[in-house]
Protein backbone atom coordinates (compact mmCIF):
# COMPACT_ATOMS: atom_id res chain seq x y z
CA UNK A 1 0.00 0.00 0.00
CA UNK A 2 2.82 2.38 0.84
CA UNK A 3 4.40 1.50 -2.48
CA UNK A 4 1.19 2.31 -4.35
CA UNK A 5 0.83 5.63 -2.54
CA UNK A 6 4.43 6.51 -3.31
CA UNK A 7 3.89 5.79 -6.98
CA UNK A 8 0.69 7.83 -6.96
CA UNK A 9 2.63 10.73 -5.46
CA UNK A 10 5.22 10.43 -8.22
CA UNK A 11 2.57 10.46 -10.96
CA UNK A 12 0.98 13.54 -9.44
CA UNK A 13 4.37 15.29 -9.53
CA UNK A 14 4.83 14.15 -13.12
CA UNK A 15 1.44 15.51 -14.11
CA UNK A 16 2.20 18.79 -12.42
CA UNK A 17 5.52 18.95 -14.27
CA UNK A 18 3.71 18.38 -17.56
CA UNK A 19 1.25 21.19 -16.80
CA UNK A 20 4.13 23.50 -15.90
CA UNK A 21 5.94 22.67 -19.12
CA UNK A 22 2.73 23.29 -21.01
CA UNK A 23 2.39 26.68 -19.34
CA UNK A 24 5.86 27.82 -20.33
CA UNK A 25 5.73 26.57 -23.93
CA UNK A 26 3.85 29.54 -25.47
CA UNK A 27 6.32 31.81 -23.70
CA UNK A 28 9.12 30.14 -25.67
CA UNK A 29 7.61 31.21 -28.96
CA UNK A 30 9.69 33.87 -30.66
CA UNK A 31 8.15 37.35 -30.27
CA UNK A 32 4.79 38.07 -28.68
CA UNK A 33 3.16 34.67 -28.19
CA UNK A 34 -0.44 35.79 -28.59
CA UNK A 35 0.36 37.70 -31.78
CA UNK A 36 2.34 34.77 -33.22
CA UNK A 37 -0.40 32.32 -32.41
CA UNK A 38 -3.25 34.46 -33.67
CA UNK A 39 -1.25 35.63 -36.64
CA UNK A 40 -0.75 32.07 -37.75
CA UNK A 41 -4.16 30.86 -36.61
CA UNK A 42 -6.14 33.03 -39.01
CA UNK A 43 -8.34 36.06 -38.61
CA UNK A 44 -9.97 36.47 -35.23
CA UNK A 45 -12.08 39.33 -33.87
CA UNK A 46 -11.04 41.10 -30.64
CA UNK A 47 -13.40 38.97 -28.57
CA UNK A 48 -11.79 35.79 -29.86
CA UNK A 49 -8.33 37.27 -29.41
CA UNK A 50 -9.17 37.86 -25.76
CA UNK A 51 -10.38 34.25 -25.49
CA UNK A 52 -7.10 33.04 -26.98
CA UNK A 53 -5.09 35.07 -24.50
CA UNK A 54 -7.15 33.75 -21.64
CA UNK A 55 -6.81 30.19 -22.84
CA UNK A 56 -3.04 30.52 -22.95
CA UNK A 57 -3.05 32.26 -19.60
CA UNK A 58 -1.49 35.29 -21.26
CA UNK A 59 -2.89 38.27 -19.44
CA UNK A 60 -1.35 41.37 -17.92
CA UNK A 61 -1.32 39.73 -14.51
CA UNK A 62 1.99 38.84 -12.86
CA UNK A 63 3.47 35.56 -14.06
CA UNK A 64 2.75 33.69 -10.85
CA UNK A 65 -0.98 34.55 -11.00
CA UNK A 66 -1.10 33.60 -14.69
CA UNK A 67 0.45 30.30 -13.70
CA UNK A 68 -2.17 29.55 -11.07
CA UNK A 69 -4.98 30.46 -13.43
CA UNK A 70 -3.52 28.08 -16.01
CA UNK A 71 -3.07 25.36 -13.40
CA UNK A 72 -6.68 25.48 -12.21
CA UNK A 73 -7.95 25.59 -15.80
CA UNK A 74 -5.79 22.63 -16.79
CA UNK A 75 -6.99 20.53 -13.86
CA UNK A 76 -10.58 21.29 -14.82
CA UNK A 77 -9.78 20.26 -18.39
CA UNK A 78 -10.38 23.77 -19.69
CA UNK A 79 -7.90 24.51 -22.47
CA UNK A 80 -9.96 27.11 -24.30
CA UNK A 81 -11.18 26.97 -27.88
CA UNK A 82 -9.63 25.02 -30.72
CA UNK A 83 -9.12 27.26 -33.78
CA UNK A 84 -9.09 24.50 -36.29
CA UNK A 85 -12.44 23.23 -35.01
CA UNK A 86 -13.86 26.63 -34.12
CA UNK A 87 -15.87 27.08 -31.88
CA UNK A 88 -15.51 23.65 -30.27
CA UNK A 89 -13.70 23.66 -26.93
CA UNK A 90 -10.36 21.82 -26.94
CA UNK A 91 -11.58 19.34 -24.37
CA UNK A 92 -14.48 18.06 -26.46
CA UNK A 93 -12.21 17.74 -29.53
CA UNK A 94 -9.79 15.66 -27.45
CA UNK A 95 -12.60 13.42 -26.20
CA UNK A 96 -13.51 12.46 -29.77
CA UNK A 97 -9.99 11.07 -30.26
CA UNK A 98 -9.31 9.61 -26.83
CA UNK A 99 -11.41 6.45 -27.19
CA UNK A 100 -9.98 5.56 -30.58
CA UNK A 101 -6.43 5.91 -29.30
CA UNK A 102 -7.17 3.82 -26.22
CA UNK A 103 -8.83 1.15 -28.36
CA UNK A 104 -6.07 0.90 -30.95
CA UNK A 105 -3.24 1.34 -28.44
CA UNK A 106 -4.69 -1.03 -25.86
CA UNK A 107 -5.27 -3.85 -28.33
CA UNK A 108 -1.89 -3.59 -30.06
CA UNK A 109 0.08 -3.22 -26.81
CA UNK A 110 -1.60 -6.23 -25.20
CA UNK A 111 -1.18 -8.42 -28.26
CA UNK A 112 2.47 -7.51 -28.85
CA UNK A 113 3.23 -8.00 -25.15
CA UNK A 114 1.60 -11.44 -25.01
CA UNK A 115 2.94 -12.78 -28.31
CA UNK A 116 6.41 -11.28 -27.78
CA UNK A 117 6.77 -12.72 -24.30
CA UNK A 118 5.58 -16.14 -25.42
CA UNK A 119 8.18 -16.16 -28.20
CA UNK A 120 10.80 -15.14 -25.63
CA UNK A 121 9.77 -17.92 -23.23
CA UNK A 122 9.82 -20.62 -25.90
CA UNK A 123 13.05 -19.29 -27.37
CA UNK A 124 14.90 -19.44 -24.07
CA UNK A 125 13.39 -22.83 -23.22
CA UNK A 126 14.73 -24.40 -26.36
CA UNK A 127 17.85 -22.35 -26.77
CA UNK A 128 19.43 -22.88 -30.14
CA UNK A 129 16.18 -24.36 -31.46
CA UNK A 130 14.22 -23.20 -34.47
CA UNK A 131 12.20 -20.52 -32.63
CA UNK A 132 15.30 -19.20 -30.92
CA UNK A 133 17.55 -19.07 -33.98
CA UNK A 134 15.28 -17.46 -36.55
CA UNK A 135 12.44 -15.56 -34.96
CA UNK A 136 14.29 -13.00 -32.76
CA UNK A 137 16.75 -11.84 -35.47
CA UNK A 138 13.88 -11.50 -37.91
CA UNK A 139 11.84 -9.50 -35.43
CA UNK A 140 14.85 -7.32 -34.65
CA UNK A 141 15.17 -6.57 -38.35
CA UNK A 142 11.48 -5.66 -38.56
CA UNK A 143 11.77 -3.66 -35.34
CA UNK A 144 14.59 -1.56 -36.80
CA UNK A 145 12.15 -0.10 -39.33
CA UNK A 146 10.56 3.09 -38.02
CA UNK A 147 6.94 2.11 -37.26
CA UNK A 148 5.60 4.81 -39.54
CA UNK A 149 7.64 3.47 -42.45
CA UNK A 150 6.25 -0.02 -41.84
CA UNK A 151 2.86 1.67 -41.82
CA UNK A 152 3.51 3.38 -45.15
CA UNK A 153 4.63 0.11 -46.74
CA UNK A 154 1.71 -1.86 -45.29
CA UNK A 155 -0.76 0.78 -46.39
CA UNK A 156 0.67 0.84 -49.89
CA UNK A 157 0.97 -2.92 -50.31
CA UNK A 158 -1.94 -4.39 -48.35
CA UNK A 159 -4.27 -1.41 -48.51
CA UNK A 160 -3.87 0.13 -51.96
CA UNK A 161 -2.31 -2.61 -54.09
CA UNK A 162 -3.92 -5.80 -52.76
CA UNK A 163 -7.00 -4.03 -51.33
CA UNK A 164 -7.21 -6.46 -48.41
CA UNK A 165 -7.78 -3.78 -45.81
CA UNK A 166 -9.58 -0.45 -45.67
CA UNK A 167 -7.11 2.42 -46.05
CA UNK A 168 -8.50 5.16 -43.82
CA UNK A 169 -10.67 6.10 -40.85
CA UNK A 170 -11.87 4.00 -37.95
CA UNK A 171 -15.09 2.78 -39.53
CA UNK A 172 -17.01 2.90 -42.83
CA UNK A 173 -18.20 6.44 -43.61
CA UNK A 174 -21.67 5.20 -44.50
CA UNK A 175 -22.29 3.72 -41.04
CA UNK A 176 -23.47 5.67 -38.03
CA UNK A 177 -21.84 4.74 -34.73
CA UNK A 178 -24.11 2.56 -32.64
CA UNK A 179 -24.34 -0.74 -30.85
CA UNK A 180 -24.88 -2.97 -33.85
CA UNK A 181 -22.94 -5.77 -35.47
CA UNK A 182 -22.22 -3.95 -38.73
CA UNK A 183 -20.59 -1.08 -36.89
CA UNK A 184 -18.44 -3.29 -34.65
CA UNK A 185 -17.38 -5.37 -37.64
CA UNK A 186 -16.34 -2.26 -39.49
CA UNK A 187 -14.41 -0.93 -36.47
CA UNK A 188 -12.47 -4.19 -36.15
CA UNK A 189 -11.81 -4.33 -39.89
CA UNK A 190 -10.39 -0.80 -39.84
CA UNK A 191 -8.30 -1.50 -36.78
CA UNK A 192 -6.63 -4.64 -38.14
CA UNK A 193 -3.96 -3.12 -40.36
CA UNK A 194 -2.74 -0.35 -38.04
CA UNK A 195 -2.63 -2.71 -35.07
CA UNK A 196 -0.84 -5.36 -37.13
CA UNK A 197 1.86 -2.81 -37.94
CA UNK A 198 2.15 -1.75 -34.31
CA UNK A 199 2.33 -5.34 -33.04
CA UNK A 200 5.04 -6.19 -35.59
CA UNK A 201 7.04 -3.09 -34.71
CA UNK A 202 7.20 -3.88 -31.00
CA UNK A 203 7.25 -7.68 -30.95
CA UNK A 204 11.03 -7.99 -31.26
CA UNK A 205 11.77 -5.87 -28.21
CA UNK A 206 9.49 -7.94 -25.98
CA UNK A 207 10.72 -11.27 -27.32
CA UNK A 208 14.40 -10.41 -26.92
CA UNK A 209 13.99 -8.84 -23.49
CA UNK A 210 12.04 -11.83 -22.23
CA UNK A 211 14.53 -14.28 -23.71
CA UNK A 212 17.50 -12.61 -22.06
CA UNK A 213 15.78 -12.42 -18.67
CA UNK A 214 14.77 -16.06 -18.94
CA UNK A 215 18.35 -17.06 -19.73
CA UNK A 216 19.37 -15.43 -16.47
CA UNK A 217 16.50 -16.91 -14.44
CA UNK A 218 17.19 -20.42 -15.75
CA UNK A 219 20.63 -20.27 -14.14
CA UNK A 220 19.06 -19.92 -10.68
CA UNK A 221 19.25 -22.74 -8.19
CA UNK A 222 15.50 -23.06 -7.76
CA UNK A 223 15.15 -24.08 -11.41
CA UNK A 224 17.65 -26.89 -10.91
CA UNK A 225 15.76 -27.78 -7.74
CA UNK A 226 12.46 -27.86 -9.61
CA UNK A 227 14.00 -30.11 -12.26
CA UNK A 228 15.39 -32.38 -9.55
CA UNK A 229 11.96 -32.63 -7.95
CA UNK A 230 10.71 -33.97 -11.25
CA UNK A 231 8.07 -31.30 -11.83
CA UNK A 232 6.45 -31.23 -15.26
CA UNK A 233 8.24 -29.12 -17.85
CA UNK A 234 5.23 -26.86 -18.28
CA UNK A 235 5.06 -26.15 -14.58
CA UNK A 236 8.74 -25.21 -14.41
CA UNK A 237 8.50 -23.13 -17.54
CA UNK A 238 5.47 -21.04 -16.60
CA UNK A 239 5.21 -21.15 -12.82
CA UNK A 240 8.88 -21.09 -11.91
CA UNK A 241 10.80 -19.38 -14.68
CA UNK A 242 8.36 -17.25 -16.67
CA UNK A 243 6.56 -15.80 -13.69
CA UNK A 244 9.79 -14.38 -12.32
CA UNK A 245 11.08 -13.37 -15.72
CA UNK A 246 7.87 -11.39 -16.26
CA UNK A 247 8.82 -8.84 -13.61
CA UNK A 248 11.37 -6.88 -15.67
CA UNK A 249 8.99 -7.12 -18.62
CA UNK A 250 6.21 -5.57 -16.55
CA UNK A 251 8.52 -2.79 -15.39
CA UNK A 252 9.55 -2.21 -18.98
CA UNK A 253 5.88 -2.23 -19.92
CA UNK A 254 5.33 1.03 -18.07
CA UNK A 255 8.36 2.70 -19.62
CA UNK A 256 7.71 1.50 -23.15
CA UNK A 257 4.11 2.73 -23.12
CA UNK A 258 5.46 6.14 -23.94
CA UNK A 259 7.47 4.76 -26.87
CA UNK A 260 4.57 2.66 -28.11
CA UNK A 261 2.30 5.65 -28.02
CA UNK A 262 4.89 7.66 -29.94
CA UNK A 263 4.88 5.11 -32.73
CA UNK A 264 1.13 5.01 -32.65
CA UNK A 265 0.76 8.77 -33.14
CA UNK A 266 2.37 8.51 -36.58
CA UNK A 267 0.53 5.32 -37.49
CA UNK A 268 -2.75 7.11 -36.75
CA UNK A 269 -1.69 9.94 -39.02
CA UNK A 270 -0.79 7.56 -41.86
CA UNK A 271 -4.04 5.59 -41.62
CA UNK A 272 -6.09 8.74 -40.93
CA UNK A 273 -7.23 6.96 -37.78
CA UNK A 274 -9.12 9.61 -35.77
CA UNK A 275 -7.21 9.22 -32.47
CA UNK A 276 -5.14 11.65 -30.41
CA UNK A 277 -2.09 11.29 -32.66
CA UNK A 278 -4.05 12.21 -35.76
CA UNK A 279 -5.49 15.19 -33.90
CA UNK A 280 -2.06 16.24 -32.59
CA UNK A 281 -0.40 16.14 -35.99
CA UNK A 282 -3.21 17.98 -37.71
CA UNK A 283 -3.14 20.53 -34.88
CA UNK A 284 0.58 21.02 -35.56
CA UNK A 285 -0.04 21.41 -39.28
CA UNK A 286 -2.89 23.89 -38.68
CA UNK A 287 -0.87 25.70 -35.96
CA UNK A 288 -3.70 25.15 -33.48
CA UNK A 289 -1.64 25.81 -30.33
CA UNK A 290 -4.33 25.41 -27.62
CA UNK A 291 -5.29 22.03 -29.06
CA UNK A 292 -1.60 20.98 -29.06
CA UNK A 293 -1.22 21.94 -25.41
CA UNK A 294 -4.40 20.15 -24.40
CA UNK A 295 -3.46 17.04 -26.36
CA UNK A 296 0.00 16.91 -24.83
CA UNK A 297 -1.49 16.99 -21.34
CA UNK A 298 -4.13 14.41 -22.20
CA UNK A 299 -1.60 12.02 -23.76
CA UNK A 300 0.68 12.44 -20.74
CA UNK A 301 -2.25 11.79 -18.42
CA UNK A 302 -3.15 8.62 -20.34
CA UNK A 303 0.44 7.34 -20.07
CA UNK A 304 0.59 8.15 -16.35
CA UNK A 305 -2.70 6.38 -15.62
CA UNK A 306 -1.57 3.35 -17.63
CA UNK A 307 1.71 3.31 -15.69
CA UNK A 308 -0.19 3.43 -12.41
CA UNK A 309 -2.29 0.45 -13.48
CA UNK A 310 0.93 -1.41 -14.37
CA UNK A 311 2.28 -0.62 -10.87
CA UNK A 312 -0.83 -2.10 -9.27
CA UNK A 313 -0.47 -5.26 -11.37
CA UNK A 314 3.19 -5.41 -10.39
CA UNK A 315 2.39 -5.51 -6.69
CA UNK A 316 0.02 -8.40 -7.35
CA UNK A 317 2.77 -10.33 -9.13
CA UNK A 318 5.73 -9.58 -6.88
CA UNK A 319 5.07 -10.18 -3.18
CA UNK A 320 8.40 -8.55 -2.29
CA UNK A 321 7.02 -5.17 -3.33
CA UNK A 322 3.92 -5.64 -1.21
CA UNK A 323 6.00 -6.48 1.83
CA UNK A 324 8.49 -3.61 1.35
Amino acid sequence: MRYILRRLGFYLIAFWAAITLDFFLPRLLPGDPAATIVGSGGQLDPQQLQAVKEALGLSDQPLILQYFTFLTHAIRGDFGISYSNFPAPVFSVILTGLWWTLLLGGCSVIFSFLIGNLIGIFGSWRRGGAVDSFVPPLLVLVGAFPPFFLGLCALYLLGFQLRWFPTRHAYEDTLTPGFDLAFFGSVIQHMLLPSLVLVLAHLGGWALGMRNTMVGILAEDYITMAEAKGLTQNRIMYRYAARNAMLPSITAFGITLGFVLSGQLLIEQIFSYPGLGFLLISAVQKLDYPLMQGLFLMITLAVLVANFIVDIIYTRLDPRVRAG
Binding site: G258, L261, S262, G263, M292, V303
Partner: peptide, 24 residues
Protein backbone atom coordinates in the same frame (compact mmCIF):
# COMPACT_ATOMS: atom_id res chain seq x y z
CA UNK B 1 16.58 10.38 -9.97
CA UNK B 2 13.25 12.14 -9.67
CA UNK B 3 14.16 14.25 -12.70
CA UNK B 4 15.25 11.16 -14.64
CA UNK B 5 12.06 9.28 -13.79
CA UNK B 6 9.93 12.28 -14.77
CA UNK B 7 11.53 12.38 -18.20
CA UNK B 8 11.25 8.61 -18.54
CA UNK B 9 7.55 8.55 -17.85
CA UNK B 10 6.67 11.51 -20.12
CA UNK B 11 5.73 10.32 -23.60
CA UNK B 12 8.71 11.28 -25.78
CA UNK B 13 7.32 11.99 -29.22
CA UNK B 14 4.36 14.16 -28.15
CA UNK B 15 6.76 16.25 -26.05
CA UNK B 16 9.15 16.39 -28.98
CA UNK B 17 6.33 17.41 -31.32
CA UNK B 18 5.05 20.28 -29.20
CA UNK B 19 8.59 21.48 -28.42
CA UNK B 20 9.45 21.61 -32.12
CA UNK B 21 6.11 23.23 -32.92
CA UNK B 22 6.52 26.01 -30.35
CA UNK B 23 10.23 26.74 -30.76
CA UNK B 24 11.83 28.54 -33.69
Amino acid sequence: TLLTNLFLVMPGLPLLIILSAFLA
